[in-house]
């Protein structure tokens, strides 16, 4: 009996050793993200574990040639780096070097799904939505990072937002011209509360910081507009769906109203047939009008400080007028009088 257990111990030891030997063949391990991950945001964080002490630098190379170099220190085994993805398929190589000698190269394929680019807005086959903040994955971060959120949930942001635990890793995402207040004040949990909505029920439990989809209720908590918009006779698809974030980036953007693109570009992303810049309005077919009403270019006569765009005539949220026109009463052409006052 004693002999048997000794043999078992020996076998286990041998087996374990064999596995170690297999691993040592590879010099690096990509802990995050797993191959064939699907992203809905543009930023992907690589967590690379250096397995061989011979490695002294890492290079993350994106398919369009962008590279990031990480110096490997003898005392540190795990390295994180966030890179920006481009829309669609991304092939990323993580290469390990000893001096100038390439030791290993691991290839990861990621997909950045964006509804703002036609043809790239369908979920590709074989990819799985990527989530980071699960207990299992976080356990590998704990050595270096405080993974317990200290983000206020009582609507009282820190005076010094750099003290929030999210800041350390996510600070790069707020480097935009306009930043949305709850994001700039690092009240991440106001939206990233881990709850799911009717469109992302399948993601339940996959992340501690899941956001409800549709997100409209989170937005309405502060903006208090839903009741009014929902009372309109006509409303815009994304508003109907409650997916404010289709047009607005809730963290921030270079554009006004945190829009994901400038207004005209944004509208013509879906309404591509309007992208000629000309918009046929029946009374504008004459040659002198070059056959159509312009949709961008001049200043907006009705809104002196803003340039003309789709939203000059259409209300992108909802309207009691057809075509979401900003019309008064029941006459569609009353919208014309916003500018044409004679």
């Amino acid at each position: 009996m004693r002999l048997l257990s000794l043999t078992l111990l020996l076998l286990t030891a041998l087996f374990g050793k064999a596995e170690d030997a297999n691993l040592s063949a590879k010099s690096i391990e990509i802990i995050e993200p797993s191959n064939k991950s699907l992203y809905v945001g543009e930023r992907a964080t690589f967590v690379v574990k250096v397995l061989s002490k011979e490695i002294n630098r890492l290079i993350i190379a994106q398919d369009e040639g962008t590279t990031v170099e990480i110096k490997v220190l003898p005392v540190k085994r795990t390295y994180c780096k966030t890179i920006n993805l481009h829309v669609g398929d991304n092939i990323i190589h993580v290469k390990s070097y000893r001096g100038e000698t390439l030791i290993d190269s691991v290839t990861t394929e990621l997909y950045f799904l964006s509804e703002l680019f036609e043809g790239l807005d369908d979920e590709p086959e074989g990819f799985e939505r990527h989530y980071f903040h699960s207990d299992t994955k976080e356990s590998s971060c704990k050595a270096c990072h405080n993974m317990t959120s200290n983000v206020p949930t009582d609507g009282e942001p820190f005076e010094d937002v750099t003290k929030t635990t999210c800041y350390e890793c996510h600070k790069g995402m707020l480097n935009t011209k306009n930043t949305h207040a709850p994001a700039a004040n690092w009240l991440c949990l106001d939206c990233h509360d881990g709850k799911f909505g009717e469109y992302n029920m399948q993601d339940e439990g996959k992340s501690k910081y899941l956001v409800r989809d549709p997100v409209e209720r989170n937005c309405d908590d502060c903006h208090d507009v839903l009741q009014e918009w929902n009372s309109k006779k006509y409303s815009h698809g994304p508003v109907n769906d409650g997916r404010c974030i289709r047009c607005h980036n809730p963290h921030g953007s270079e554009n006004e109203f945190f829009l994901r693109k400038s207004i005209w570009d944004l509208c013509t992303t879906c309404h591509a047939e309007k992208a000629t810049g000309k918009h046929i309005v029946s009374s504008f077919v004459f040659a002198r009008n070059q056959g159509a009403h312009p949709t961008k270019g001049p200043k907006d006569p009705a809104r002196p400080k803003r340039s003309f765009a789709c939203s000059s005539c259409h209300n992108p949220h909802g309207s009691n007028g057809i075509f979401l026109l900003r019309m008064k009463g029941s006459m569609p052409f009353s919208v014309c009088s916003r500018c044409h006052q004679k």
């Binding site: 942001p157 207040a181 700039a184 009240l187 908590d221 502060c222």
Partner: peptide
């Protein structure tokens, strides 16, 4: 106070002006 959040305005005064970093902008 905006919505349900109380955003610090983080005002700093100078002799001839000042600055702030409230909810609304950097």
């Amino acid at each position: 106070s905006f919505g349900k959040i109380n955003f610090p305005i983080r005002y700093i005064e100078t002799d001839t002006g000042g600055s702030c970093a409230p909810a609304c902008h950097a």
